[in-house]
Computed example of a mutant assay.
Amino acid sequence: MDQLKKGGDLVQVTPSLSWGEDLMVNSYEKGKSPGPGEASYKNYNMGKDGMFWRGVMNKDMVSDMASYSCERTLFWQDANTVPQDKHAPTPEVLAAYAYDRINVPDTKFELKPAAKSTVNLPTWVWSGKGRFQDVKVRAELPHTDLWAETTAKPVSLHLEAGTPDAETYPASGECAINGDGSIGAPYSTGDADRTPPCGVTYLRATDGRPYRLRASVTWEISWTGSGGAGGDLPDGTFESTRDMDVQEIQSVNR
């Protein structure tokens, strides 16, 4: 449904061919009812707090005859209210609108070693503070009390080494999101032989073709809305990959 005009402000309304000039002048300016049970208005309700609405068909569904049932001529709705119409917007509709506009940060991560690892030595994986935090999008319908807010919450980063000849840390490959929005811990000098909170150890060297290390972050998405409405929406998973060359260092024991 469309909002067309706020009563306090006169807006030029161009009638469609189905309405006709007579209908617009008689029903909305002169207050003459177009038929039994049909509403009429004087001078477009100027000075009243509210706006005219109308039902419109989804332009992408013109082949669906059922979509024509939502068409409706202009009618008045008082401010801060929503029409009692099965086609009127709902918090669920606004939640879907907000869901489509969620923009989560790219799945970027740091590595040490950055591109060439060594057999049996851990590769550290981490992301800095504040990168992975809740993302909220709120949708409101102007001049009504209708609203919905979606929240995308990062759950974990999942590591896939790109080969079965590897071990991940943790063993599940699921690195938790820390309270400060970071993942894992940065590599520091002297950490080469330590087990990282998030990382991978390759057990076999590459043979000219790099392993593809894949990291994906899952976002759980929920929503709340006016009137106590709310629920869950489909999760989103976003990934990034790195090519990893793994070398084997030979040593001689005497």
Results as ranks from 00 to 15, higher is better:
Cys198Asn: 06
Thr206Gly: 07
Thr201Arg: 08
Cys175Asn: 00
Ala185Cys: 01
Ala185Tyr: 05
Thr195Arg: 03
Pro197Lys: 01
Cys175Trp: 08
Arg212Val: 12
Gly184Asp: 15
Gly199Lys: 07
Asp207Asn: 04
Arg212Phe: 04
Asp207Gly: 09
Ala176Gly: 03
Asp193Met: 14
Leu213His: 02
Ser172Ala: 11
Ala185His: 08
Ser188Pro: 06
Asn178Asp: 05
Thr201Met: 08
Thr206Glu: 07
Ser188Glu: 11
Cys198Ile: 11
Arg194Cys: 07
Ala176Arg: 14
Gly184Trp: 14
Thr189Ala: 03
Ala205Arg: 12
Arg194Ala: 06
Gly173Ser: 09
Arg194Trp: 11
Tyr202Leu: 10
Ile177His: 14
Ser188Thr: 04
Tyr187Ile: 07
Gly190Ile: 02
Pro196Gly: 01
Tyr202Ile: 08
Cys175Val: 12
Cys175Leu: 00
Leu213Phe: 10
Ser188Tyr: 01
Leu203Ile: 12
Gly184Asn: 15
Arg209Ser: 05
Glu174Tyr: 00
Pro210Asn: 05
Leu213Glu: 00
Thr189Ser: 14
Glu174Lys: 01
Arg214Ser: 00
Cys175His: 02
Ser172Glu: 06
Ser188Met: 02
Gly190Thr: 07
Ala215Thr: 05
Leu203Asp: 05
Ser172Tyr: 05
Arg214Val: 03
Gly173Ala: 11
Ile177Asn: 11
Asn178Ser: 10
Tyr187Ser: 08
Ala215Met: 10
Gly173Val: 07
Tyr211Asp: 04
Gly179Arg: 15
Gly208Lys: 13
Cys198Lys: 14
Gly173Tyr: 05
Asp180Phe: 12
Asp193Ala: 15
Arg204Ala: 00
Thr206Cys: 07
Arg204Cys: 05
Gly179His: 15
Thr189Asn: 12
Pro197His: 02
Gly184Arg: 15
Asp180Gln: 06
Arg212Gln: 04
Tyr187Gln: 12
Pro186Ala: 09
Tyr202Val: 06
Ser188Ala: 06
Thr206Ile: 10
Asp180Ala: 05
Ala205Glu: 14
Pro197Cys: 04
Gly173Phe: 12
Gly181Glu: 10
Ala205Asp: 11
Ser182Trp: 14
Glu174Asp: 02
Gly181Ala: 02
Tyr211Lys: 08
Ile177Ala: 06
Thr201Gln: 03
Tyr187Ala: 09
Val200Ser: 09
Arg209Glu: 13
Thr195Met: 00
Pro186Gly: 03
Gly184Glu: 14
Thr201Tyr: 01
Thr201Cys: 04
Gly173Glu: 11
Arg212Leu: 01
Asp191Gln: 13
Arg194Thr: 09
Thr206Ser: 11
Gly179Met: 11
Thr195Asn: 04
Arg212Thr: 09
Ala205Pro: 06
Pro186Cys: 03
Ala215Trp: 01
Thr195Tyr: 02
Tyr187Thr: 11
Arg194Ser: 13
Pro186Ser: 08
Pro197Phe: 02
Cys198Arg: 11
Gly190Trp: 14
Gly179Val: 15
Asp193Leu: 12
Pro186Thr: 04
Tyr211Trp: 07
Asn178Lys: 04
